[in-house]
Design a protein around this nucleic acid. Sequence first.
DNA 1: CAGCATCCTTCATGATACTG
DNA 2: CAGTATCATGAAGGATGCTG
Lengths: 111, 111
Amino acid sequence: MTDPCLPECGVARFLTLLNGPWATLIVRELLRGPHRFTELRDSLPGISPHTLTNRLRQFERHGIVTRTTYAEIPPRVEYELTPLGEGLRDVLDAMGDWALAVPDPGAEVTV
Amino acid sequence: MTDPCLPECGVARFLTLLNGPWATLIVRELLRGPHRFTELRDSLPGISPHTLTNRLRQFERHGIVTRTTYAEIPPRVEYELTPLGEGLRDVLDAMGDWALAVPDPGAEVTV
DNA sequence: CAGCATCCTTCATGATACTG
DNA sequence: CAGTATCATGAAGGATGCTG
């Protein structure tokens, strides 16, 4: 894709920052509060540390998430949404509301 | 990704149905009204007919879009959102609202 | 605990050419 | 006009193993 971002299209910007299947799910988990790396990994069944790291780094770069390191033994790192990241709650809520109207994938209508 | 869909997670369902960079942008265009194939292609700079076809077919299968063929010469086909697809307007609006708060990617804060 | 390094797979997409 | 067919690419993701 060369440049799908039509000038006045905020949707495209959202898609650029929350790309990939996991991005939005990570944000969803962080909306419940700050998480340590392992907590996030355990809350997202199937995600690999590789992917989790990549997504979190991208979120940091985009100012959606803050990363706080505590110099302890064992080391502790906490990820937390910035105010900007918190603003995603409305979007995620809208997704959830919409999904309620979606018929179950396997459900067939009895004609 | 094996199964990112946590049981009560409508967000995951949304992501499954609107996957890929183009999906949401196509819906965004259809929210403006019914479109012919060529109209959609021209409204989405950079999209290939291959991709456009694939996305539209998937939307059809998921009940988000209807495809209507008119037996004319030259042939005419119109794509239109179903009520379910129309329901995505709220989600897209939320994305757009959020994006307004995102600092411009290249913009540096003058300290 | 919180990652990083490396290699490999999958999938949406792109490019190009062709048809009813 | 509205696609389909074929081949190729690139980025997200997965698997495994290792480190400060």
